[in-house]
Amino acid sequence: MAILPPGENWFHQKVAKDEKIWMGLAFVMSLFLFFWMIIWHVYAKQNPSFVTYKTTPEEFYQLTQAFIEKYKIGEENGIPVVKPPPGSDVFLLGRQFRWEPVLVLKKGEEYRFHISSLDVLHGFSIQPVNMNFMVFPKYDYVLTFRPTSAGEYAIVCNEFCGIGHHMMIGKIIVEE
């Protein structure tokens, strides 16, 4: 009875057969989930990165500006468009309320994204592929992406960053 102390011998009561089987199944499922994550981490191709560097907003801003200057090919709606070579380090800066720069990438090639923020937390959400990561000020998150499909993609900010949060949208173009 849930409202009264259990009977004297509660600790020695035998577990019913069906409850025992169920507990076994549930335990196996739990272990499976745990080891599945490890196996996926080792063998599969979609895993959150664990490469992070400390930085400062000033340093990261400077690096992003240098990156933009080096590979700039144009401008769209006041935001520089940048085409870095495959395999390079790519700098993407989030700030209230825009992403800089617009990136032009090549399908099937690897890029080392460095993502950080100038001010508050932002969310890095690539749509419509729907991959989501967090962006912090003072931390440079290094994510190595290999875009496997071509087209135009949006970077939606999906962590609340202030009153203009809904205007914070960037762009990635993936060419064949």
Binding site: V156, C157, G164, M167, M168
Partner: peptide
């Protein structure tokens, strides 16, 4: 996204 006032992104540079 969650916590988002306008998923038509009015006022943003892209959509």
């Amino acid at each position: 996204p969650r916590r988002h006032w306008d998923i038509t992104f009015s006022g943003g540079p892209f959509t």
